[in-house]
Structures are given as structure tokens and as C-alpha cells.
């Protein structure tokens, strides 16, 4: 079970969190004019990398805040934790 450093509460056990899937999926600013392909990608197309993955986590049984995590999907190392709205950090080996 992962130990996730909540930026607001500090390190907490994974059971306190909910994973919200891939981070930085941007909802098209003008949905009405978005093409079917753009909307499809926004809704359904997700990365599943072997290695660094940027994902959203919510401290559901704690402060209830959402934040971003950079996690290595092979080793489960947590490489960075950063706020919503921030750009993904330079991480990886």
C-alpha cells in the first residue's frame, strides 16, 4: 500500500485516498465547437505508460483536497506531488 504525501496533511496511507486517473486532461474550452474526435479524446483516451505517470489523487478520507502525483508505474515510486493547475514537473530517470 502506497504512502502518499498529501501536500496539505503530509504522508498518509493509500486507503485514505481516491485516485482520479490521468492528470492534465483538459476539458476543451469551447465544447460546442470541439470536433467529435477532440471530444472523444477528452472523454475516453487515456495514457497508460510504463514509467512516469501524472495522475490526480484526492485525499478523500482526510482534507478532501485534490492534487497531482507523478508516480512511476513500474516501481510505484512517487516522484513528485504538486498542486492542481501546476504544470507537470520534470521528473523521471
Amino acid at each position: 500500500m502506497l504512502l502518499i504525501p498529501c501536500p496539505h496533511c503530509g504522508p498518509r496511507a493509500e486507503v485514505e485516498f481516491r485516485c482520479g486517473g490521468e492528470a492534465h486532461v483538459v476539458r476543451p474550452a469551447e465544447p460546442e465547437s470541439a470536433s467529435d474526435e477532440v471530444w472523444r479524446d477528452y472523454l475516453f483516451v487515456r495514457k497508460s505508460p510504463k514509467g512516469v505517470h501524472f495522475e490526480r489523487w484526492n485525499h478523500a478520507h482526510g482534507c478532501q483536497r485534490w492534487f497531482n502525483v507523478a508516480r512511476d508505474t513500474v516501481s510505484d515510486e512517487i516522484l513528485a506531488v504538486y498542486r492542481m493547475g501546476e504544470a507537470p514537473p520534470e521528473v523521471g530517470r
Binding site: R27, N58, A60, Q64, M84, G85
Partner: peptide
């Protein structure tokens, strides 16, 4: 509730 909270925090801060 969790979903609405998600929207407020991440989509429409």
C-alpha cells in the same frame, strides 16, 4: 458530492 467537489476544485476553481 465527491464529483461536485472535484469539479469545483479542479475544473472551476
Amino acid at each position: 458530492l465527491a464529483w461536485l467537489e472535484d469539479l469545483l476544485q479542479t475544473e472551476w476553481p
